[in-house]
Write a protein that binds this DNA or RNA. Structure first.
Lengths: 147, 147
DNA sequence: TCAATTCCTACGGATTTAGTCGGAAATGAA
DNA sequence: TTCATTTCCGACTAAATCCGTAGGAATTGA
């Protein structure tokens, strides 16, 4: 039931980009240092995010990465799916065809419903939280922090 | 974000015991056959469930396993915790001491809140569903199935 | 031209997953 | 008692996944 470092780091990196958006491309090295993530490892994650269209990149000097869309249009669920695959507690939930052993008997279908409920509750959180929401949270934290 | 076969099989086995509760011990072999799970593998899972006090066993001929508590007093969350460990998307959420890199800066705390929300939503489903709930579901399925 | 930076492929060690194997100990029935 | 049944226990393992590392090619701005 864990998010791997791929998902965790990926969200951190995207959140970092969101916080610093609008100021041109940000070098991988900068993100890696700020977020304390191995540069080479993060590179792989950014490659996946780029191929999925969530970030755009510019090579060469002064190059780097930036969000491909506005923070309010990027959900955490999107990021997780790119880096961890489908959001599901059991693979057969999404690829379900009816022939698997999971739904051959009524009692197994009961369990299927259970896992589906779990899946829905996870999606509910991840798909309804955007990078903009997190930015707002960060702003709120910073304001109240100084008091 | 997946439940491993330990959790999946464990829930299946416990649900099987719940459906057949009150009729004395049920042999591992029977459960394994009904649920299509490797006998030896299931044995390991039952050992963990027994040590955790969720099932009780009787050795020897006519021996087997039965639930240690009434189905309404056993949640899916309990089963999952025994077989998969704490229900948490990130290990640091539960073992958090404040010294980890996750909460040294406000922006990281924002992410912590995100993962906590996800954790809560997972717990909400798993801790509020009992074996008795599943039995009820199974009964309902069986009734409507014949129509 | 050159330093900075992304892009790409391959490799590798550690851990986890999903079991298997073999036998000891306990129990009920004949 | 004897025996088949059944749990209990520890060790082993093949494969997959996780979490990176290494090295260099290609691109870009100054």
């Amino acid at each position: 039931m864990r998010v791997s470092t791929r998902g965790e780091y990926g969200v951190r990196a995207m959140f970092d980009l969101a916080l610093h958006s609008g100021a041109g491309p940000i070098a991988l090295k900068t993100i890696a240092e700020r977020q304390m993530i191995s540069e080479h490892y993060l590179e792989q994650l950014m490659a996946a995010l780029r191929k999925a269209g969530l970030v755009k990149s510019r090579r060469g000097a002064q190059g780097g990465y930036q969000l491909a869309h506005e923070p309010e249009n990027v959900s955490i669920g999107q990021i997780i799916r790119v880096l961890e695959g489908p959001i599901t507690p059991l693979d057969c939930l999404d690829t379900h065809t009816g022939t698997g052993p999971y739904c051959q008997t009524p009692d197994r279908c009961v369990l299927r419903n259970l896992w589906k409920e779990l899946q829905d509750s996870m999606k509910q959180v991840l798909d309804n939280t955007t990078l903009e929401d997190l930015k707002q949270d960060a702003y709120r934290l910073e304001v109240t922090e100084g008091q």
